[in-house]
Computed example of a mutant assay.
Amino acid sequence: MSRLDRYSTRHLEQELNLETLADDLEDVSYDPEQFPGLVYRTTDPKAASLLFRSGKLVCTGASSIDNLEEAVRITVEKFRSLGIAVPADPEVTVQNIVTSGDFGTRLNLNAIAIGLGLEAVEYEPEQFPGLVYRLDEPDVVALLFGSGKLVITGGEHPTDAEAAIETVQTRLLELELLET
């Protein structure tokens, strides 16, 4: 039912000259007028590392925690090969796991907004086509779409996403707003 996308942050403990890095690295995008960081892409595993002048590194797009750690390792090794002093064994901190899924049936978002309670949801279809449902346990956000698709964001562990999907599905079934 779901697809996972993870990101983590790491600090390289030094300021970076992004212009020089953009000249020295292949597979990078750097356009400071569009985005304040440099984007370095790995292909195996597929991920993108966002590097900022402050030395902050954010790795995103990996499909598993193992792939995330591997992409960070590749990025750090690449920097070391350029003579950038990077701390040994960088700690990878997962900060956000994005999970997408599909209930396989259309959802009536107006009824869901009323059923879940207006204090727990944001639904303004003129502004955004999805319903935003903030769960307390786990502490994540579920985006529900009329097509039946959902996105869970904000978790730090795969179990957060799994629990959120189960919670949303159970609530919708209890409210008789989801076909089985």
Rank of each mutant, 00 (worst) to 15 (best):
18 L>P: 02
27 D>L: 00
61 G>V: 09
66 D>W: 11
107 L>R: 01
38 L>K: 08
71 A>D: 01
20 T>Q: 15
39 V>F: 05
41 R>V: 07
13 E>F: 11
61 G>Q: 04
31 D>G: 12
43 T>Y: 06
27 D>F: 06
20 T>V: 15
104 G>Q: 10
47 A>K: 00
52 F>A: 05
39 V>N: 07
58 V>W: 02
47 A>C: 11
11 H>M: 06
64 S>G: 13
14 Q>R: 15
42 T>Q: 02
21 L>S: 01
40 Y>I: 00
70 E>H: 06
31 D>H: 13
9 T>Q: 12
40 Y>R: 03
23 D>G: 14
104 G>I: 06
99 T>Y: 02
86 V>F: 02
97 I>W: 02
89 D>I: 10
37 G>N: 04
80 R>G: 09
103 F>Q: 02
94 V>P: 10
43 T>A: 03
38 L>V: 04
86 V>P: 04
8 S>K: 05
84 I>L: 12
23 D>M: 15
107 L>P: 09
87 P>R: 13
39 V>R: 11
58 V>K: 04
81 S>D: 14
69 E>D: 15
31 D>K: 15
6 R>F: 14
62 A>H: 10
31 D>N: 13
35 F>I: 08
79 F>N: 05
57 L>P: 09
21 L>E: 04
36 P>I: 07
104 G>F: 00
14 Q>Y: 10
102 D>E: 10
110 N>K: 13
30 Y>W: 12
59 C>A: 12
25 L>I: 12
24 D>M: 14
